[in-house]
């Protein structure tokens, strides 16, 4: 693997049982990411975007194939080591229900830092910093149900970035937002990618998301069918 390669997925398959036949959600997928990439994974509903993201995020394990992230053979890790790898290396932004509902915006961001054992003052300072980076200064103490959908997604982005991961995975981050808020969220992430050099992989069939991409990867029926630098 060359120096600027971050992720290498080789021949990855994932099968689900439907009725009495097996159905391939991922069908021999090869996929790479370089450091600093800002890649959007597009494709129709059911094409396998979430499944691929889950494999890369170590939320699920492929049935076949190998997966190397930041030089580590992550499929060989135990469940506890995988949880730790997620904590230390990967930031997540999900489509919805991103936040722990009983924690404030700032506590949500600080939660991951707390899991890492960071002291209270430091983690709250960092949380406040990233909340202001995503434009939520002044809303630090609101609980998720006191924030709009777009604001909630921004909190999730702040959380994903606060822990300085090597890779940020976002699954349909704009799906629940109107196009204006979707665009500003994408611009925010792109901006952070450019300023901080963090690598992003975003699954989305939203044109707004695709417009922000440096690279577009298209999936169909569990296969990657095209990959274009924009």
């Amino acid at each position: 693997m060359s120096d600027d390669m971050l992720l290498q997925a080789t021949d990855v398959c994932k099968y689900y049982h439907s009725g009495d036949s097996d159905m391939a959600a991922l069908d021999h997928v090869d996929f790479q990411l370089k450091k600093g990439d800002f890649t959007v994974l597009s494709g129709r509903s059911g094409s396998g975007k979430t499944t691929l993201l889950n494999m890369i995020g170590l939320l699920d394990t492929p049935d076949v194939g190998s997966l190397d992230i930041a030089g580590e053979d992550v499929l060989a890790l135990s469940a506890a080591k995988r949880a730790d790898f997620r904590l230390q290396r990967i930031g997540f932004v999900f489509q919805a229900y991103n936040l722990i509902r009983v924690l404030s915006a700032r506590e949500n961001v600080a939660y991951v830092l707390q899991l890492r054992g960071m002291a209270k003052k430091e983690r709250l300072d960092i949380a406040d910093h990233w909340l202001s980076e995503v434009g939520l200064k002044g809303l630090e103490h609101r609980r998720p149900d006191q924030l709009s959908g777009g604001q909630q997604q921004r909190v999730a982005v702040a959380r994903a970035l606060a822990s300085q991961p090597v890779l940020v995975l976002a699954d349909e981050p704009t799906a629940n937002l109107d196009s204006q808020h979707g665009e500003s969220l994408m611009n925010l992430m792109r901006d952070l990618n450019e300023r901080c050099g963090m690598t992003f992989l975003i699954a989305s069939h939203d044109p707004v998301a695709m417009a922000a991409a440096k690279q577009c990867v298209h999936m169909e029926d569990g296969n990657i069918v095209s990959s274009d630098i924009v």
Partner: peptide, 16 residues
């Protein structure tokens, strides 16, 4: 269930 899934995804260990 979703929230526990989220916490696990974020890296909360099984023991935690």
């Amino acid at each position: 269930v979703r929230e526990f899934g989220l916490m696990a995804a974020l890296g909360t260990g099984q023991k935690q």
